[in-house]
Computed example of a mutant assay.
Amino acid sequence: MTTHITGTREEWLAARLALLDAEKELTRRSDELSRRRQELPWVRVDKEYRFETEEGSASLAELFRGRSQLLVYHFMFGPDYKAGCVSCSAIADGFNGIAVHLANHDVTLSAVSRAPLAKLLAYRRRMGWTFPWASSGDGRFNFDFNVAFTEEQQREGTVEYNFERAGHAMDATPVPLPVAQSAAMTGTDVPTYSLDRPGLSAFVLEEGAVYHTYSAYARGLDGLWGMYQWLDRAPRGRNETGIWFRRHDEYDRR
Rank of each mutant, 00 (worst) to 15 (best):
T158E: 02
E152Q: 14
L20K: 13
L117S: 03
E39Y: 08
N104P: 00
H4Q: 10
A183M: 03
G157A: 05
M76K: 15
D222S: 13
I98A: 15
E32D: 15
L60D: 01
A202G: 15
C88G: 08
T130W: 02
D232Y: 10
Q154H: 08
A148Q: 14
R16Y: 13
I98N: 02
Q154L: 09
R126M: 06
E55H: 08
R29E: 14
A234G: 08
R125Q: 14
G220K: 06
A18C: 07
Y73M: 04
P174Q: 02
R155E: 08
G7C: 09
V86Q: 05
D138Y: 05
G56S: 06
K24F: 04
H74L: 11
E25K: 15
A111S: 12
D252P: 02
G187H: 05
F145V: 03
V100S: 10
L17Q: 13
H74R: 07
D106I: 09
D138Q: 13
F51T: 04
Q38Y: 04
Y217N: 06
E10G: 08
I5L: 13
A122S: 14
I98M: 10
L121T: 11
H4L: 14
C88V: 11
C88Q: 06
Y161M: 02
R197S: 02
V204W: 00
V210R: 06
A115T: 10
T6V: 12
W42M: 08
G167E: 02
G94R: 08
T2C: 03
A103H: 10
G78E: 01
W244K: 08
N162G: 05
D249R: 02
N142R: 05
R29T: 06
N162Y: 07
F145R: 04
Y214L: 05
L200F: 14
S34V: 12
G208R: 06
A169I: 09
D31L: 14
D21C: 01
G97T: 11
F149C: 01
T53R: 03
F141I: 09
Q69H: 15
L221A: 11
Q181R: 11
S110C: 15
